[in-house]
């Protein structure tokens, strides 16, 4: 029983992290059809910010690093994506791929290609014992923060005027502009939110691994892609659900695959993605507005 609960906590914690990552991608896709490869480099920027800021009072350090990531996301929008905003989705995808590669190599130029270690988040490393179940504080904080962020995001998107404008832009961008939605502003808000999510997710990633490298964000962004595809491109609800589902699948594969096959876990996860794309090309929760119109 304890084992089962422990696995459940693991799965929820991994799932919460994946959901955060996926939301950051899905949000921008909803607004401007952008699948942002460079999202992983936002995580990386957050990680290096923590390295550079080491020694500061921990909570302040986390806030400053998140602020840096948000600013980086806004700059990304202004410098890289604004010039290609009207291009088709594939061009945007290729642009973000080039940007991601650019930032990785800038990081190599500045910090070198070897990982930098950091003690950020080590304060959360201790485990606590709740009725026989050993849980790390990091997992608990992660679950709480991710839960709060997801709820806040849902409230903003569903209840506020800004959220309504964002949803309108996601539904039909040109129409939304015609009735007075400020495109620049909505997209900037989308990038800022995406940056916020990346900053938080990046912090937890650093706390788990204890080091940052130029390719720090690559595997995380792959996970986020999977979750957004499986969830139905652009669907926020789908992204969150798929993030959690992936967390469970990952832990399940880890536990259930024969020992010899565990190193291939990621191959199995990606095979599930391919299969999903073939069987349900629109994802688990299709965006009705995106159905092909002829």
């Amino acid at each position: 029983m304890e084992d089962a609960i422990q696995l459940l906590v693991d799965a929820v914690s991994v799932g919460a992290q994946y959901a955060l990552l996926a939301l950051g991608i899905a949000l921008l896709f909803g607004i401007m059809n952008l699948i942002n490869f460079a999202y992983g480099e936002l995580l990386m920027i957050g990680g290096y910010a923590l390295v550079v800021l080491a020694g500061m009072w921990a909570p302040l350090m986390v806030l400053v690093s998140i602020a840096i990531v948000v600013v980086a996301a806004l700059l990304m929008d202004r410098i890289a994506f604004k010039p290609v905003r009207r291009a088709d989705a594939t061009t945007l995808l290729v642009t973000s791929f080039a940007l991601s590669y650019l930032l990785q190599n800038v990081a190599i130029m500045i910090f070198g290609s070897l990982p930098e270690t950091t003690g950020a988040g080590s304060g959360l490393a201790r485990s606590i014992d709740i009725a026989g179940v050993v849980v790390s504080r990091l997992d608990l904080v992660l679950i709480a923060v991710a839960g709060a962020l997801i709820v806040a995001l849902v409230l903003i998107v569903k209840r506020t005027a800004l959220g309504i404008q964002m949803r309108a832009a996601a539904e039909d961008f040109e129409m939304a502009r015609l009735i007075g939605v400020n495109a620049d502003r909505i997209i900037a808000v989308g990038f800022a939110m995406s940056g916020l999510l990346a900053g938080v997710a990046g912090y937890f990633l650093v706390a788990q691994t204890g080091s940052v490298s130029p390719t720090f964000g690559v595997s995380a962004v792959l996970i986020a892609f999977i979750a957004t595809i499986v969830g139905g491109l652009g669907s926020l609800r789908g992204a969150v659900l798929a993030g959690f589902a992936l967390g469970f699948i990952t832990i399940a594969f880890q536990e259930l695959l024969p020992a010899g096959l565990v190193p291939y876990r990621d191959a199995f996860v990606f095979a599930v993605v391919l299969l999903t794309l073939v069987l349900r090309p629109q994802g688990l929760i299709p965006q009705t507005a995106r159905a092909a119109r002829v």
Binding site: N33, I35, T90, L93, I226, I229, D266, V273, L277
Partner: peptide, 26 residues
């Protein structure tokens, strides 16, 4: 190949990415 008879555009691009990762992991 059968997968590409069903998906196109962005989903197809991402499916090819999944394939790259699978080959790499193996």
């Amino acid at each position: 190949a059968p997968a590409f008879g069903r998906v196109s555009g962005l989903s197809a691009a991402l499916a090819t990415f999944a394939m790259l990762v699978i080959v790499y992991v193996i």
